[in-house]
Design a protein around this nucleic acid. Structure first.
Length: 339
DNA sequence: ATTCCACGGGAAAGCATGGACC
DNA sequence: GGTCCATGCTTTCCCGTGGAAT
């Protein structure tokens, strides 16, 4: 059934990509000046989850790297690295210059100085989930480095700019915007067909079944590939030769649960408790939620902290908040909801 | 007009950890 | 080893803002 497992991982970057020619072209032309020792244009790549932003950005840079060996690029997930130190650390790590840097006791400015002193060749940073960065100074840092170009990735354009102070906003507001719309069913089907061709036996799945997966995944390539992966595994476990529609439908809830579980595991105990409390209610008001939380834990965090946790969880797409002010309600995000 | 509730920014405090020195 | 210091990270504390209810 499965001939190459890597191809079915959603972070896999294929050798050829389909349906994003315009975006790839734009990425490439913004990076093109690097070939002539000119600075590259900074970019903001935005669009809904699973629209190929991360994949295509990395793909474009791999292509460029293959063409012109004289560049380096590095991918940084700002969800995990949201403060100035971590981002700079990751940036240095991409250059292999972190050997003697310690998480504590190394001043952040020293990391910046070190990055500054590296100027032998162009360095491109992909800042995924860039709206998660808490300290925008780091964007200013990157901007001020001549040899560093940044590709910022976010779901929504406005999330990136609204918290920036004027100094950095006025500079980055002019970066090139590249929009990624959600994939349509036929586009997703093509993507799946490509993965199936590389990762599965030739007759494992037919066009109709791929189309069904694409349909269920509502535009999200990550979900689509996840469903294909789980379906293939299930078929393999059952010794089936082909992936049938029934089997696909069987595996959809499991795939949704999987992505959710992956996120929940990143939460600390307090956050998980909040999640459980919300999960036990259809919806819950903040006061009620805080009180329930206080009752169930020995060393409660402050309400301010809970609000920060809740914000994080909302960004994680685990919960949603509805209503303003005293009408605010929290509830669990349904697995089939988008965005 | 005043009170209530919730939100979220920012300063300050508290915590953990590596390094230098004894 | 023990002590002190510098640093980044997390959490708390304080407070202004804004909408709704009284």
């Amino acid at each position: 059934m499965i001939t190459d497992r890597r191809v079915l991982q959603d972070e896999f970057i294929p050798r050829e990509v389909v349906h994003r020619d315009a975006q790839i072209q734009e990425l490439a032309s913004n990076l093109e000046p690097l070939m002539h020792e000119q600075p590259a244009q900074d970019m903001l790549v935005y669009g809904p989850p699973g629209a190929g932003k991360t994949c295509i950005s990395q793909y474009a840079l791999e292509q460029l790297e293959a063409e012109a060996a004289d560049i380096t690029y590095h991918y940084i997930n700002c969800w995990e690295n949201y403060n100035r130190f971590s981002v700079l650390y990751e940036a240095l790590d991409g250059l292999g210059r972190t050997l003697d840097v310690h998480r504590q006791s190394t001043p952040t400015d020293e990391l910046f100085d070190r990055l500054k002193s590296y100027d032998s060749r162009p360095y491109i940073l992909i800042l995924d989930e860039v709206d998660q960065i808490e300290d925008n100074r780091v964007l200013y840092d990157m901007y001020s480095l001549e040899h560093v170009a940044i590709i910022m990735i976010a779901n929504r354009e406005e999330d990136v700019f609204y918290r920036m102070d004027d100094r950095i906003r006025s500079r980055l507001i002019n970066c090139d915007r590249i929009q990624f719309g959600a994939y349509g069913v036929s586009e997703l089907t093509d993507i799946l067909a490509d993965r199936a061709a590389w990762g599965l036996h030739p007759d494992a799945i037919e066009h109709e079944q791929l189309e069904h997966i694409a349909d269920v995944a509502v535009g999200d390539a990550r979900i689509a590939i996840g469903i294909l992966r789980n379906a293939a595994r299930r078929a393999e476990a059952e010794g089936a030769e082909r992936i049938k529609i029934d089997l696909i439908d069987d595996v959809v809830p499991k795939t949704q649960k999987e992505t959710r579980q992956k996120n929940i595991e990143c939460l600390n105990d307090h956050q998980q408790l909040l999640y459980d409390i919300i999960d036990g209610n259809d919806s819950i008001q903040p006061r009620e939620l805080y009180d329930a939380y206080d009752e169930q834990v020995d060393d409660p965090r402050s309400e301010r902290m809970l609000r920060k946790y809740l914000n994080k969880m909302e960004h994680y797409n685990l919960i949603v908040s509805e209503g303003e002010g005293r009408w605010r309600q929290y509830r669990i995000k349904d697995g089939t909801e988008q965005g």
